[in-house]
Design a binder for these strands. Structure first.
Lengths: 223, 223
DNA sequence: CTCGAGCTGTTCCATTTTGAACACCCGCCG
DNA sequence: CGGCGGGTGTTCAAAATGGAACAGCTCGAG
C-alpha cells in the first residue's frame, strides 16, 4: 500500500519513517529536551536508537585532554545512536540537544524487528546510514586535503543547508566560533581570523546573524 | 530456519554473506584483478556493490590539485561501492586492488532484493556499514584531535590488524611511506621522520618488513 | 543598575608543518 | 653491464598553526 516504496530510489524525502515506529508493539518513548540537555553521554550503556522529531542534536567526542570535537549536527528526520545495532555496548560520544527538541527513543530490539518486517523502513534506514557514511567520509577527506581556511569555508556552506535537504539557505544557523573550531579541528582565534577575512572580502556578512554568499565563498574551496 | 539470525548480536564473524549472493537469480559476476588494477574510478557510473573474496582493495580520492587521499584499506569479507544504494549515480572515489584479488560485483537491484528477502544478510550488511561508519568516524576524530605523529602511530596500530578481525599482528603489511602519508594527511618526509624516530625509540623495527611493538607504540597515543 | 558569564576581536611568538630539493639504494629489464 | 623506476634518508627555509593572553561587548539574573 505504500507506493513510494516501489524502488529504493523512489524512497523520497517526504517518506516518514516514524509511521512504522508508531505501530503497536514497538517499544518507544518520546521525550522533550531543553537546549543543552544531554540525550546520552560518552560511556553510557547503549540500548536505544534515537529519532529526531523536532529540534537539533550535536554529536561530540571528548578527548583525554578535555578538548571537544563535534562530529555531526543533526536535524529532524535524522537517526542517531545507531552504534548499538553494531554491537557497541557503550556510547562512544555524547549527544546534546542544541535547541529545544522532541526526540523519540526506540529500543534496540524493536528497531531490529521493524527493520526486519518493513522493507520501506529498512530501505530508508540503510539510506540514512549510507548518507551519514558519505558525509563523514567527505569530512574526513576534507581534513586530509584542506587547510583550516578551506575547511571553515566548507563548514559554512554545509551549515547553510543544515536540515534543509538540498535547499541551501543564505542564513547560517547561529553557532559559536568555538563550536566551529571544534568542527574543523582548529582553535577559536583561527576561526575568528578567517571569519573576519571572509567578511572583509564580502564572502559573508554578520552582526548577530551570519549570512553567506555561497558563490563567492565557494571560490575559497577551489584555491 | 536460520538460527544464526536469532539476535542481531549473534550474527558473528563466521557468517558468510556470500552464500546469499550465490542464490539463483542474483545478478553477479566474479572477476580477478592484478595488483594495481582499478575496480572502479572516480566519476564512473555507479551500478554495482562489490564484495571482496580474496585480496585487498584501497579506496582513494584525488583532489583537484592531484593529491591522493586514501580513505580505507579493505580486506576479504568487506563490501565496497555501497554508495549506489544511497542513490549516488557516479563514483566519488577510486577503488584499486592492492594485491591480486578476487572480487564479486553484485547488481544494485539484486543487492536490494537480497536485502529485502534475507534478514540474516541484511543484518550483516547493516552491521558492516555501521562498522565502517564507526571506523571512518574514528579516523575523523583522530584527524580533529591529533598531531601527525599520533596519527601515524594509530595508523600503524590499525594496519597491524588489517583483515584480521580483532587479532592484531606484529607484522604490518607492506605499505609505502607515500601511502601512509596520504592516509594520515601529511607529507612523505614527515612520515619518514616519525618512522625513524619510532625506530630509534624501539617502537618499531624494519629492514624490508615492518614490525611494531604495540604496547610501546600505544604510548605515543597517550602523550 | 551592576555583576558575571559567554562570546567575540586581536596580538604575539614558539612550534609544527609544508614543499622542494638532492643523494642513495636496490631490483629489474634490455 | 648500465640505466631506470620506485622507494627511502635527509636537509632547509618559508609558511601555517597552535596556544596563551588580554580587552571589549551584550544580555540576563539578581
Amino acid at each position: 500500500m505504500l507506493k513510494t516504496a516501489k524502488t529504493f530510489k523512489a524512497v523520497g524525502r517526504k517518506f516518514n519513517p516514524q509511521a512504522f515506529l508508531d505501530a503497536p508493539g514497538v517499544a518507544r518513548t518520546v521525550s522533550a529536551y531543553d537546549k543543552g540537555d544531554p540525550v546520552f553521554s560518552q560511556g553510557d550503556p547503549c540500548r536505544h536508537v534515537y529519532y529526531i522529531q523536532k529540534g537539533g542534536v550535536k554529536l561530540s567526542v571528548v578527548s583525554e585532554t578535555g578538548q571537544e570535537a563535534v562530529v555531526a549536527l543533526l536535524a529532524p528526520g535524522d537517526f542517531f545512536g545507531e552504534g548499538c545495532l553494531a554491537g557497541q555496548t557503550v556510547r562512544m560520544g555524547t549527544a546534546t540537544a542544541v535547541t529545544a527538541s522532541t526526540i523519540m527513543a526506540v529500543k534496540k530490539e524493536s528497531m531490529i524487528r521493524v527493520l526486519h518486517e518493513e522493507h520501506t523502513f529498512s530501505d530508508r534506514f540503510i539510506k540514512h546510514m549510507l548518507a551519514r557514511n558519505i558525509r563523514i567520509e567527505e569530512d574526513l577527506i576534507d581534513q586530509l586535503f584542506n587547510s583550516s581556511e578551506k575547511r571553515l569555508a566548507r563548514a559554512l556552506l554545509l551549515l547553510a543547508r543544515y536540515g534543509k535537504q538540498d535547499k541551501p539557505q543564505r542564513v547560517v544557523p547561529k553557532i559559536s566560533q568555538e563550536t566551529l573550531a571544534s568542527m574543523i579541528g582548529t582553535t577559536r582565534p583561527r576561526v575568528n581570523f578567517f571569519l573576519n577575512k571572509f567578511r572583509k572580502l564580502g564572502f559573508i556578512e554578520y552582526n548577530g546573524e551570519l549570512k553567506i554568499n555561497s558563490s563567492l565563498l565557494t571560490v575559497v574551496l577551489h584555491d
